[in-house]
């Protein structure tokens, strides 16, 4: 009996799963920070909430870029991998557009 190769879809999904996790973390982190008053706690020339959100956004971008780098280092050819690249690029650009506002918009 052959075991299924379940991770076969991973390259297609990984980019947007990272985006989705980042989205939820930043949205939930923002709501929590506002409620708990992190935006009023000074930290490194700004406030704690903005620092957390910038850290989250940069971390998400780094994770997406690292995934792209890892995929390029393992250049397995094929439909799924090519599709994965497209989806990863789309997820990375989406993350930039989605979250760049954490640098400048009023927080709470």
């Amino acid at each position: 009996m052959r075991r299924d190769h379940a991770p076969g879809f991973a390259p297609i999904l990984v980019g947007f799963i990272l985006w989705a996790v980042g989205f939820l973390a930043l949205y939930a982190g923002h709501a929590t920070g506002c409620e708990l008053g992190w935006h009023m706690a000074p930290a490194l020339g700004t406030n704690l909430l903005r620092l957390v959100l910038i850290g989250g956004a940069v971390g998400l971008l780094a994770a997406l870029l690292a995934t792209g780098w890892w995929m390029r280092r393992h250049p397995v050819q094929g439909f799924v991998i090519r599709l994965g690249y497209y989806a990863l690029i789309a997820a990375t650009l989406s993350a930039v557009v989605n979250f760049f506002a954490v640098f400048w918009l009023p927080l709470c």
Binding site: F16, I17, A20, F23, C34, A90, V102, L105, L107
Partner: peptide
């Protein structure tokens, strides 16, 4: 594109709630 659409469509739900008084940054997401 449809993979992207599927995921992005789950990041829009609050756009039905713009008038509920959420902070600007949340609305921006």
């Amino acid at each position: 594109a449809i993979v992207a659409m599927a995921f992005l469509s789950f990041g829009l739900w609050v756009h039905h709630m713009y008038a509920t008084g959420l902070p600007h940054l949340s609305l921006a997401f």
